[in-house]
C-alpha cells in the first residue's frame, strides 16, 4: 500500500510533461468522441413523438382558426404532407341547440388515435 502511494506521489511531482503532439492527438480523439455524442443526444432529445405532437398541435390550431375565421361550418377532412409524413386533419361541425360545436382532430398517417384535438363552440349567425 505504501509502495503505491510513493509511486503516485512520484508521478505527481514528476516534472515530465506531455508534448504538444501528444496533447493534440488526445484532444482530437476526445473531440472525435464528443462531437458525434452531442449530435446523437441532440437528435434523441427532440424525439420523434415530441416532433409529431408539435406538428399535430400546430395543424389543429391552424385548422381551428381557419374554421372560425372563414366560418367554414361544415364537416371535412384533408391531407397535409410534411417531411414525408401524411397528416389527416378532420373538421367536425355539429349543431348543438343553436350553437355550433366544432371539433378538430389531427391524425398521423393511419393511426386510429388523434395526436391533437381541439374543441370549441360558436354562435351560428
Amino acid at each position: 500500500m505504501k509502495f503505491g502511494y510513493v509511486h503516485c506521489l512520484r508521478a505527481l511531482v514528476s516534472e515530465k510533461g506531455y508534448t504538444l503532439v501528444e496533447t493534440m492527438v488526445a484532444n482530437a480523439i476526445l473531440l472525435g468522441v464528443l462531437i458525434p455524442a452531442v449530435v446523437f443526444f441532440g437528435k434523441i432529445t427532440i424525439n420523434q413523438h415530441s416532433q409529431d405532437l408539435i406538428v399535430a398541435s400546430n395543424l389543429a390550431t391552424q385548422e381551428m382558426e381557419k374554421t372560425i375565421g372563414f366560418q367554414i361550418y361544415e364537416n371535412g377532412t384533408h391531407m397535409v404532407k410534411l417531411n414525408n409524413k401524411v397528416w389527416h386533419v378532420e373538421r367536425e361541425v355539429s349543431h348543438d341547440m343553436g350553437l355550433l360545436a366544432i371539433r378538430i382532430r389531427v391524425f398521423k398517417q393511419q393511426m386510429p388515435k388523434p395526436l391533437a384535438e381541439l374543441r370549441t363552440l360558436r354562435i351560428f349567425q
Partner: peptide
Amino acid sequence: YLAEAGIQ
C-alpha cells in the same frame, strides 16, 4: 378554446 366556448 373552452373559455371562448363559454363566452359564445
